[in-house]
Design a protein around this nucleic acid. Sequence first.
DNA 1: TCTTTTTTGTTGACGGTGCAACAATAATGT
DNA 2: ACATTATTGTTGCACCGTCAACAAAAAAGA
Lengths: 155, 155
Amino acid sequence: MNQALKILDIFIKIQENSDVFRHKGEGLLDEISLAEVHCIDWIGMIDHPNVTKISEKMGLTRGGISRISKRLLGKGLIESYQEPDNNKEIYFQLTESGQSVYDEHKKIHNQARQEWLVFFKHYSDDEQAAILRFFTEVGALFDSESVAENAGKHM
Amino acid sequence: MNQALKILDIFIKIQENSDVFRHKGEGLLDEISLAEVHCIDWIGMIDHPNVTKISEKMGLTRGGISRISKRLLGKGLIESYQEPDNNKEIYFQLTESGQSVYDEHKKIHNQARQEWLVFFKHYSDDEQAAILRFFTEVGALFDSESVAENAGKHM
DNA sequence: TCTTTTTTGTTGACGGTGCAACAATAATGT
DNA sequence: ACATTATTGTTGCACCGTCAACAAAAAAGA
């Protein structure tokens, strides 16, 4: 995997959870919130997705996912099912319309990825290496949460 | 102004408005939300701050600032005043306790700035140049909002 | 001056999320 | 088998911010 792709992965991850870089104009997928689309995305990707797993992936509380999934159920984008030997865990799967949203989101996602890739291609290998180093190190800092608690407090 | 400082300014601006890089643990300044601290900060910096000016600076709606300022008034951190020849615009100023919050926030802010500066010092001039170029160009893209509406949609 | 337009700040309804308590169920220990 | 503990999903409460409608005031136009 080359540098540009690595940067891309990190950068898109940031973009997905960032206020600053959040899309401003609304897309074709109206009537559906960003959180809902992300939730659909994870439901499409996780094996036997339930509230707990989704909440871990999305970094939200179980309560939050519980509410989002209820909305998605109401909109007919997902449906729930259970395994015969387990009466506690409730899994989700995409309905046909949910799958459409999933596909469209993926399409847009890949398109954006392509555009960013073109953007990064304008940087030399050395420049890419520097940016990658930066993202990697900053990411590590925030993963360990030491900076978040020391330097990043109430900034 | 050297490269490291320029990167710092951009990066701190990103950090201030980012979910990903938001502080997780709470600080000494409890009882006050992040938005409230930022609002106090702007009230301390703007000349004749009113709801509209603050909302423009903070990138929130007037309604949002209206509510935040009401909370701050309730907490006794700011107070409002008007000019004799203008009955429409309502300005704010920090109370003594509001000024304390402002000062403490600035202190923490500068401290974080120092720590980030140390962090950036570990990068060579060339690396800093690459990172700076990156931030500058990405910033320009999102300022023009073309990418935000094309590439960044529902990512 | 009088009318129209713009600006300003507020508010109700709403969406989104965290927290914490909760009941139901499953897993574990003995 | 039984009791204890842990996990799962839901919900009431609270907070935060947006949106859109609104009234009051100021600015602009004539």
